[in-house]
Amino acid sequence: VAGLRLAPPSSPSEGRDLTDARRTAALTRRDVLRAVVDYDLAESALKLEIARQYPEIHIGPGYSWDHGATKLPFNLGLVLPPADLNRA
């Protein structure tokens, strides 16, 4: 979607190829561009819901200093999916 842009309308007398003229006509229509954006948003939402079916593991760094003793702890976070695996 980022590569799409609105092109200025052109006259058919410029000698363009018919397929190029059809592509330009489709890309200059706002309803077609809106449909492409809606499709892209729905696809990314679907990918997110599929990813939520699997557990997430987060490992985070840490640092603490206790009277000259340097410690390097780490955090471990585990997020489990719901019992129905987000299929609802």
Rank of each mutant, 00 (worst) to 15 (best):
V1F: 10
V1K: 15
A2H: 14
G3C: 06
L4N: 04
R5W: 05
R5A: 15
L6P: 09
L6D: 13
L6K: 15
A7Q: 14
P8H: 14
P8I: 05
P9A: 07
S10N: 04
S10R: 14
S10V: 15
S10Y: 04
S10A: 12
S11R: 02
P12F: 06
S13C: 12
S13E: 11
G15T: 00
G15E: 01
R16Y: 10
D17V: 13
L18G: 11
L18V: 10
L18T: 02
T19V: 08
D20N: 14
D20R: 12
A21Q: 15
A21R: 09
R22D: 09
R23C: 07
R23Y: 08
R23M: 12
T24Y: 08
T24D: 14
T24A: 15
A25K: 06
A26K: 13
A26Q: 08
A26H: 02
L27W: 12
L27V: 08
R29F: 05
R30K: 08
R30Q: 14
R30N: 13
D31I: 11
V32S: 02
V32G: 03
R34T: 13
R34V: 03
R34K: 14
A35Y: 07
V37L: 08
D38Q: 06
Y39L: 12
D40Y: 05
D40K: 00
D40E: 09
L41F: 05
E43H: 13
E43C: 07
E43R: 15
E43T: 13
E43D: 11
S44Y: 01
S44T: 10
S44I: 00
A45W: 09
L46N: 06
K47R: 07
K47L: 11
K47N: 07
K47A: 13
K47H: 02
L48D: 15
I50F: 12
I50N: 04
A51H: 08
R52F: 01
R52Y: 03
R52E: 00
Q53V: 01
P55W: 06
P55V: 00
P55Y: 00
E56K: 15
E56A: 10
I57N: 00
H58L: 09
H58T: 05
I59V: 15
Y63S: 01
S64I: 11
W65L: 11
D66S: 11
D66C: 07
H67S: 06
A69P: 01
A69N: 13
A69Y: 03
T70E: 14
K71I: 03
K71T: 12
K71C: 03
K71Y: 00
L72Q: 08
L72W: 04
L72R: 08
P73H: 02
P73S: 05
P73F: 07
P73Y: 11
F74G: 04
F74H: 13
N75F: 09
N75W: 07
N75M: 06
N75V: 13
N75C: 04
L76G: 04
L76C: 06
L76Q: 01
L76I: 15
L76R: 08
L76N: 06
G77V: 04
G77W: 03
G77D: 02
L78W: 03
L78P: 01
V79G: 00
L80V: 10
L80I: 13
P82M: 04
P82R: 08
A83H: 02
D84V: 07
D84F: 03
R87T: 03
R87S: 01
A88F: 05
A88G: 06
A88L: 01
A88E: 10
